[in-house]
Amino acid sequence: MKFFLSILLALLWSSTTVYAQQKQDSQFNRMMKDSFRSQGIAGLDRIVQDATQRFCSDPKFASSPAGLKKSEELQKLNMATIAPPSDGQYLGDWKNGEAIAQSGRGDTWSDSASTPNGGGCYNCHQINQKEIAYGNIGPSLWNYGKNRGYSQEVVSYTWNRISNSKAYNACSNMPRFAHFKILDQKQIQDLMALLLDPASPVNQ
């Protein structure tokens, strides 16, 4: 009953607001189209959204009951994009991983296509406690493996998280590092080692 009522309400709401919404959207789209130009590696294709981005740009809808249902669908879509490591190796070298986590460069119009991208992980996460210049948009990853253990379940969850965080949370604030090829497989293996190698300083 509650379900039907909410459908009815949604229909009523959409029929009255749909016209105003369309008008505003076309004005908005025109503004976005006219307001940017390409520069260096940052082309205009970057403001063309995929389905997940479009969904997350409307936080009011995204947190509605209909939005929650849609977010499950999108998470499945994102999960389907994740590939396990082609050589079966999940863990690389934590020392390289630390350097990748430190570097925040890559993909801006002032970067060139040939310089390797970083993960910028410290922008958002505490990782090695020794680095005190860390951001807090994401949770602390200090003692990541020590706290969670090193099971295959933890290992593949972490691989998936770094590859495509929106597989777990459609509107995650964390970039989809493998999905948009920000990082390559080797770099992700090295970051995995930073978090999940028992010898990594993160797990001391």
């Binding site: 976005m32 981005q53 740009s57 090829k181």
Partner: peptide
């Protein structure tokens, strides 16, 4: 209204909007 919409407009290879930060 368009400014508000632009603030939450998520796109690009990092999935960022103004609201991400």
């Amino acid at each position: 209204e368009m400014g508000k919409q632009a603030f939450y407009f998520e796109a690009g290879p990092f999935d960022f909007s103004c609201a991400s930060c």
